[in-house]
Amino acid sequence: MANHALTNAEVSFQVVLTVDEALAFLKFLKRAGHSDYKKFADTRGGDAEVYEMLYAGEKIRAEIAATGFYCR
């Protein structure tokens, strides 16, 4: 459940992954599509949460890619 006091705040974190974990997560992000996110999002108010999840995944994918890991 979201903490509404943090709405619109930014969250920054660092995570350490093994090479296998990074590649596996990149593969997951590559395979996950709009319908997958929609299945797990709260869509009672529309698709806003679906797109927030998609955008967050893309930001994480970009950060992993910036370290030199790519998933084809």
Rank of each mutant, 00 (worst) to 15 (best):
D42V: 05
I60H: 00
L26T: 10
M1P: 02
V16E: 15
S35W: 01
F40D: 09
C71R: 02
T67C: 07
G46N: 02
A65K: 05
Y51L: 14
K27T: 03
A22Q: 07
A65P: 00
R44T: 07
A9R: 12
L26P: 12
F13N: 06
D20L: 15
D20Q: 14
V15L: 15
I60V: 15
F40M: 09
T43H: 03
F13D: 10
K59A: 12
L17Q: 08
A24R: 10
L23Q: 05
G57T: 11
L54H: 06
Y55C: 09
F69I: 07
A56Q: 08
K59H: 03
V11Y: 11
D36S: 11
L29S: 06
T43K: 03
F25A: 01
T18P: 02
K27H: 10
T67G: 02
R44C: 05
G68P: 02
V11Q: 08
A5P: 00
G46H: 04
L23M: 10
T67V: 09
M1K: 04
F28L: 15
L17E: 03
N8C: 06
A66I: 00
T43I: 14
E10W: 08
R61E: 12
K59Y: 01
V15N: 08
G46S: 01
A66E: 06
A24F: 09
T7Y: 08
G57S: 15
V19D: 13
A62G: 07
L26D: 10
E63P: 00
T43S: 06
R44V: 04
K59Q: 10
T67K: 08
K39Y: 02
A62V: 07
H34T: 04
A5T: 11
K59E: 12
C71G: 01
L17H: 05
V15H: 06
A48D: 14
F40C: 10
A9C: 15
F28Y: 12
F40N: 12
E58F: 09
E10F: 09
Y70L: 13
A32T: 11
K27W: 05
R72A: 02
D42Y: 10
I64P: 01
L6N: 09
E10M: 06
K59L: 15
N8F: 10
R31A: 15
G33Q: 11
Y51K: 12
Q14C: 09
K38A: 14
A65N: 10
F28H: 09
D20I: 13
V50A: 05
A2M: 13
Q14M: 10
A56M: 10
A48F: 10
A62Y: 01
K30L: 05
M53V: 03
A9M: 13
